[in-house]
C-alpha cells in the first residue's frame, strides 16, 4: 500500500486489481491539484504493471468527491509558469494549468479516460465537478442510491467541462439541463440517462463483482478493447472537445459580472470556503 497525503493506493495481485481511494472525507473529498497529480502518478504505476487489469476508484466516507477545492483551483494558476508575474495570473498560466492538471494529455481526466486497464468507479453521495468527470471517464460506474451527480461550479462561471464526452454519454438536451439549469441528477436519473451502469444497495459488493469479472478477461483482450474505445473517442471528437474546454475554461477565469450577479470568488474571499460553497449550491435542485 502506498499513501500520499489524501490519496491511497493499493494493489491486490491475487485479484489483478489496484485501488485508488480519495481520503479527504472531512472536506467531502474535494480534489486539489496535488491530489490530481497523485492520482496520475498512481495511474503511471498501474499502466506499467502488467499484472494489474482493473483499477477501482472510490472515496472514503459518505461522498465520492464534492468537486474542486475552490482555493486550490485559483492557486493552480499562480503556480503555473507565468502565474505570479503580476497581480493576477497571466492567461498563459491559466491555459497551462488547465491543460497540465485536468484536460491536456497529461491531465487527470485524459489519463483516466485513456487508461489501458478497466476502470471501475464506486460513486456515493456527492459526485460533483471532478466527481462527475470521474463518472464520465471511468469504464464502469456503480452508484449508491444516495449518489448525486452535478457540476455546480458551472453555475458560478459558466461551463468549463468537456461537452463532447457529456453529449456522447447522456445526449445533447440532458447535458444542457446539467449545464444550465442548476440541477443534480439522482442515481436513478443518472442510470436512466446512461451516466451510471448500476445502482446498488451494496455498492462495494457490486464494484467487487465487476472488478472480479473484468479481471477474468485476458490481458490482451482488455488492452485491445480499450484501444478500440480510444479510436472511437477520437472519432467522436473528444480530443477536440478537451482542447476547446482548456481554452474556454481558462477564459472563464476572467469573466466580468453584471450588477446583481453572484460572484463566487468574491464570496470565497469574504466569507470562506464553507459559506461560499453553501451559498453557491443552495439552489441546486435534485431531479
Amino acid at each position: 500500500m502506498s499513501s500520499h497525503e489524501h490519496v491511497e493506493f493499493s494493489i491486490d495481485r491475487e485479484r489483478y486489481t489496484a485501488r485508488i481511494t480519495l481520503r479527504r472525507p472531512a472536506a467531502e473529498n474535494r480534489v486539489t491539484t496535488a491530489m490530481a497529480t497523485q492520482i496520475c502518478d498512481f495511474l503511471d504505476v498501474v499502466e506499467q504493471d502488467d499484472d494489474i487489469k482493473v483499477v477501482v476508484l472510490s472515496g472514503e466516507g459518505e461522498h465520492l468527491c464534492a468537486g474542486w477545492e475552490p482555493q486550490d483551483a485559483w492557486r493552480q494558476y499562480l503556480d503555473a509558469p507565468g502565474g505570479s508575474v503580476r497581480k493576477h495570473p497571466s492567461q498563459r498560466a491559466r491555459l497551462i494549468a488547465a491543460d497540465e492538471n485536468w484536460w491536456g494529455p497529461r491531465g487527470l481526466y485524459t489519463r483516466l479516460l485513456r487508461c489501458r486497464k478497466v476502470t471501475v468507479l464506486e460513486a456515493r453521495g456527492k459526485c460533483f465537478e471532478t466527481g462527475l468527470y470521474f463518472a464520465l471517464c471511468c469504464d464502469l460506474v456503480v452508484a449508491g442510491a444516495d449518489a448525486r451527480f452535478a457540476c455546480p461550479r458551472w453555475r458560478n462561471v459558466g461551463v468549463d467541462g468537456d461537452m463532447a464526452l457529456l453529449f456522447a454519454t447522456v445526449g445533447l438536451k440532458r447535458a444542457k439541463e446539467l449545464m444550465f439549469c442548476d440541477v443534480a441528477w439522482s442515481a436513478r436519473t443518472a442510470l436512466a440517462y446512461g451516466l451510471v451502469d448500476y445502482v446498488a444497495d451494496d455498492v462495494a459488493a457490486k464494484v467487487e463483482e465487476l472488478a472480479n469479472m473484468s479481471a477474468s478477461i485476458m490481458r490482451d483482450g482488455i488492452v485491445t478493447e480499450k484501444y478500440a474505445v480510444f479510436a472511437s473517442l477520437d472519432k467522436m471528437g473528444i480530443g477536440h472537445s478537451f482542447a476547446a474546454t482548456t481554452v474556454v475554461g481558462a477564459s472563464l477565469s476572467n469573466i466580468h459580472f453584471q450588477p446583481g450577479e453572484y460572484n463566487f470568488l468574491r464570496d470565497l474571499r469574504d466569507n470562506g470556503v464553507d459559506e461560499a460553497l453553501s451559498t453557491s449550491r443552495r439552489g441546486l435542485r435534485d431531479v
Binding site: 458551472w154 459558466g158 474556454v248
Partner: peptide
C-alpha cells in the same frame, strides 16, 4: 438566468465549437 451573462455566452461558444 442565475448564471452570469458572460458565463452563458462563453458556454454557448464552447458548445458551438463542439
Amino acid at each position: 438566468t442565475g448564471m452570469p451573462l458572460d458565463g452563458i455566452t462563453m458556454s454557448k461558444m464552447l458548445l458551438q465549437a463542439v
